[in-house]
């Protein structure tokens, strides 16, 4: 990563030049003010609504074993190549994007500074993807939340927050295990595994309306499994789940407390948790300690135009 590479990637991230009609940029679906999501249940592309909601990009550089809800991309460089050519998201071709970048009054200089190319013909999709990936890797949050400060021993959590913490990670056997930490483990408050969290009812492994990971791997038992998103800044990332079905955090907690819908590969951690309303409130209080609002205003992530 270089300063010039990150700078170029940030410009490309915010520039609608990647879309066919110059109306949609990466930032359209990944807005800094919403912790790099878009507030929609399904994202808006140039040709309509996409199939799924946008995932937060917070700490995306630390994720591997597949990116996107269904793990279709092995790394950020691959991920960055997909939206421009998605027929709904940006509906452009990389051939055309390359032409636009090569003929642009500024980008050839930016690419030269970032990658040392000696001719505009050296500008291609792979360098563009590398630059965008460099910028994405700078979107880091893991220092300023109340949770992080608590872990570092700088502050105490409030009693309700602390109770929620104990249940989230099942630290105190006298409290119920809220089963959260299996899929949303520290420090990312996510994992690189995939889970069926009981959103879709299916009598067998083959009847999920959205197969998620299974559509990518072709493995039946992966059907209905999705990547758990980070819970950092989740107060800004509503609506929730891959299809945005839950508008509020209490709805999310109620879903997990209920055990969700039945299917053969539903996670073993999904069952009726028998939580009181007070315990649910404590878990919500803990979730809010994961808020780092400085990420939303960090000038390094802002639109450079």
């Amino acid at each position: 990563m270089t300063v010039d590479g990150i700078r170029l990637g940030r410009k490309l991230f915010y520039d609608p030049i990647l879309s066919v009609d110059s109306t949609v940029s990466c930032a359209t679906c990944h807005q800094q003010a919403l912790s790099f999501t878009d507030g929609l249940d399904r994202s808006q592309g140039v040709a309509g609504m996409t199939r799924r909601g946008s995932l937060s990009l917070i700490n995306v550089g630390f994720h591997y074993d597949g990116l996107f809800w269904d793990g279709r991309s092995p790394n950020l460089e691959h991920l960055s190549l997909i939206p421009p050519e998605d027929p709904i998201e940006m509906a452009e071709t990389w051939d055309n994007v390359e032409l636009k970048l090569r003929n642009h009054p500024v980008y050839p200089t930016d690419f030269r500074q970032a990658f040392g190319i000696d001719n505009v013909s050296g500008i291609d999709r792979h360098l563009a993807a590398k630059a965008i990936s460099q910028f994405l890797r700078t979107i880091v949050s893991g220092h300023n939340s109340r949770y992080d400060r608590f872990v570092r021993g700088e502050i105490f959590l409030e009693e309700n927050e602390f109770n929620g913490y104990l249940m989230f990670f099942n630290i105190d056997p006298s409290l119920p295990d809220a089963q959260c930490g299996h899929c949303h483990n520290a420090p990312l408050m996510a994992t690189n595994d995939y889970f069926n969290n009981g959103l879709q009812e299916s009598p067998d492994l083959y009847s999920f309306p959205d197969p998620g990971l299974g559509a990518i791997t072709g493995i039946a038992s992966d059907n209905g499994r999705f990547k758990p998103p980070t819970l950092r800044n989740l107060v800004f990332t509503a609506p929730y789940m891959h299809d945005g079905r839950f508008k509020t955090l209490p709805e999310v907690v109620d879903h997990y407390a209920s055990g969700g819908k039945e299917s053969p590969n539903k996670s073993s951690f999904m069952f009726n948790l028998v939580l009181t309303e007070s315990q649910k409130a404590d878990i919500l209080a803990f979730l809010l300690t994961l808020t780092d609002s400085t990420t939303l205003t960090n000038p390094a992530f802002k639109n450079p135009f």
């Binding site: 591997y64 074993d65 990670f169 099942n170 630290i171 930490g181 299996h182 899929c183 483990n185 520290a186 420090p187 990312l188 996510a190 994992t191 690189n192 595994d193 073993s268």
Partner: peptide, 27 residues
């Protein structure tokens, strides 16, 4: 680093300060 099995947060259990050594799950 991400290439190591020990980088997998899904195999670390915070409450125990320990890695998860094995998983046997089912119904």
């Amino acid at each position: 680093s991400s290439g190591s099995p020990l980088s997998k947060t899904g195999y670390y259990w915070v409450a125990w300060n320990s890695y998860i050594f094995s998983k046997t799950e089912g119904r």
